[in-house]
Design a protein around this nucleic acid. Structure first.
Length: 290
DNA sequence: CCCCAGGTCGTCA
DNA sequence: TGACGACATGGG
């Protein structure tokens, strides 16, 4: 039986648009000045009025408020991190101001793994579509406000899905990757729980064992899931672009090595490089200044 | 027709 | 290690 949720908080560093459009998540959609989405078994609408954040929705669980606080990372002081990062240089100062309302969500690990496997060589609107179709087909329905939302399918719920089924959902060449990763987790060849206790570097190496998970996707999983590691720097085409434009200035962007970019991230942004990456990504992708 | 998208994998040197 | 092409799909 589902229950109504209503929860208000006053907090700074919280802008729905920045949070949901900065590229970390794929299941939130804007409508009339507020965002609606689903995580865990919670369908939620998020609205900002002045400095007040209003969460309303439905859930099947008893600890929705706790889950919301955790998901939105509400117990972390983003202002102090932004202040610290903005001291590195002028670019970072501008980027943190541009995306000042960003928070890095604590998304479900399994969902984050699958979502970012799908993200490989893909664009955000299409990634969202695939994840929606995957959830509609294999997730559980939850009704809210005259609409049906679907939970993200568990490994168990994907147990009998064939490669061809994934292909029909528009996954393209990633169908095999998804199939193999689902199988590894269901067979017990890969233990999701064990990642939480590992240092970042070890968890990274472990994630690389999954099919369809390379360096970039592994780092996105570490940063955007509830593993919540800020000491990683996912490098995609946009981050490569912005780092090259600002710091390296190589005429041929493609010739810049990832190790060079990583070195700059380590030196400039240190243990908050994951967050720095997100401010830079959001800033560069929204403002195509070049 | 082209090029591109939050890349990874297999192969070859 | 590093380079390079293949890999679906949909939009510009």
């Amino acid at each position: 039986m589902s229950k109504e949720i209503y929860y208000e908080v006053n907090t700074d560093s919280f802008e729905p648009r920045d949070i949901f459009e900065c590229g970390q998540c794929f299941r939130w959609n804007v409508e009339k000045n507020s965002y609606t989405g689903i995580f865990d078994d919670i369908v939620l609408n998020v609205k900002k009025e002045d400095s007040k954040i209003i969460f309303s929705g439905v859930t099947e669980s008893d600890d929705a408020v706790e889950k919301i606080r955790k998901y939105f990372d509400l117990d972390r002081d983003y202002n102090s991190i932004k202040t610290r990062l903005s001291k590195t240089d002028k670019n970072m100062k501008i980027a943190t101001e541009y995306g000042s309302g960003i928070r890095i969500l604590n998304q479900n690990l399994w969902e984050t793994i699958i979502s970012f496997i799908i993200s490989a060589n893909n664009n955000i609107p299409r990634i969202k579509g695939i994840i929606e179709r995957l959830s509609e087909k294999y997730g559980r329905p939850i009704e809210y406000s005259n609409k049906t939302y679907y939970t993200f399918p568990t490994p168990e719920e994907l147990k009998d899905v064939e490669v061809e089924d994934y292909r029909k959902l528009g996954l393209g060449f990633r169908d095999v990757r998804l199939y193999e990763t689902v199988k590894m987790v269901n067979d017990g060849a890969f233990h999701l729980d064990e990642l939480y206790n590992k240092p970042t570097k070890e968890a990274y190496e472990e994630l690389l064992k999954l099919s369809g998970v390379g360096p970039k996707v592994a780092n996105c999983i570490l940063l955007f899931s509830d593993l919540k590691r800020f000491d990683v720097f996912p490098i995609d085409v946009w981050v490569r672009r912005v780092i090259n434009d600002l710091y390296i200035k190589n005429e041929n962007e493609k010739k810049v090595k990832n190790s060079d970019i990583q070195k700059i991230a380590d030196e400039k942004f240190g243990k908050y490089q994951g967050l720095a990456q997100q401010y830079l990504f959001y800033w560069r992708r929204e403002l195509t200044w070049l």
